[in-house]
Design a protein around this nucleic acid. Sequence first.
DNA 1: GTCTATAACACGATAGAC
DNA 2: GTCTATCGTGTTATAGAC
Lengths: 191, 191
Amino acid sequence: MNQKSETRKEEIITTAAKLFKEKGYSAVTMRDLATAMGIKAASLYNHINSKQDILNTIIISIAEAFTAGMETIIQSEDSSIEKLKQIVALHVKITSNNTNGMASLNNDWMHLEEQLDYYLQLRNDYEDNFQVIIQQGIVANELKPNNPEIIMFSMLSTLRSLYLWLPKKEDFNPADLAMNLSEILIDGINT
Amino acid sequence: MNQKSETRKEEIITTAAKLFKEKGYSAVTMRDLATAMGIKAASLYNHINSKQDILNTIIISIAEAFTAGMETIIQSEDSSIEKLKQIVALHVKITSNNTNGMASLNNDWMHLEEQLDYYLQLRNDYEDNFQVIIQQGIVANELKPNNPEIIMFSMLSTLRSLYLWLPKKEDFNPADLAMNLSEILIDGINT
DNA sequence: GTCTATAACACGATAGAC
DNA sequence: GTCTATCGTGTTATAGAC
């Protein structure tokens, strides 16, 4: 595959991610995607193998980026609170790099076929690592002895919803947002 | 329509909501729904008008419950923090009453047709009221002067994800969970 | 109230011309 | 690399028997 073909393939995947965000994987047809690309549906198949392959590419690449980021964080010697701040920054970074793809990761993962089990494994490992960090924070008396599951659920819900919210803030600074968000999630909102 | 027919209709809607949660509105076919009900697809149309009508019924009834709950909260004389706690309790209550329907409200609202504008109006009004409560809390010095939008985004993300999390906690007490969640969202998690 | 049969159309994907 | 034409199947929904 030459470079021009690779570029066209990436263009298709980017366009697909945008459409998947708007209507979801199942509601987007290959004809929709072709129209958005300015070509006919049959022409898409010169660049991609199937609709399912597009979804695979979008979701797995992001899931692996999260896995790699988490690996770095757990291997550091920082405090638990510092690690939680790094997780917040990781979500802000990955989401701002691929807002549309994050929508597929969050909402269309169940439509994966061959790669479904692999995705679920990555997600479970990620959540396990997240919870270990919280538990270590409680043991070290950095965090209140709240239910670790509820803490992770609350943080992860906010971080996973970033894809809905970032596009509305066109002129945001990732570092500032990550700091602001960490403050709210960790220190709370009351005076 | 007699009572038996009404009951059957409700049964179809309940079953549909469960399937919509698993695969999304677009990926669930009338044949899937019929199979889950133990009948043939054509028989569904003796009880409901269309697939779209099922989605309308699921989403709009929940959206109106949120609107009614918010009306009560904003009319009270309580402090802003007390109002925020009431919002948390409202989400826990509605979500625990209809976990599957909440999935459609969150993920399939864009597939509404005639009622899309009405839904968006209810959602915008809800978010406006939510933000006013936060702003009043900042003015009254009950809340830190953080960005009200980020505060609402963070709280609402967690509350809107409850439908994913509640079913895993089979033996939960709504009042306890609401209190626990309010604590984390309002007071933060650090010592 | 459920069935069989089917209308009318949309879907993902392929074949082969240019 | 894109096109036209088309295959085989799946889709929502209706008609009419029982």
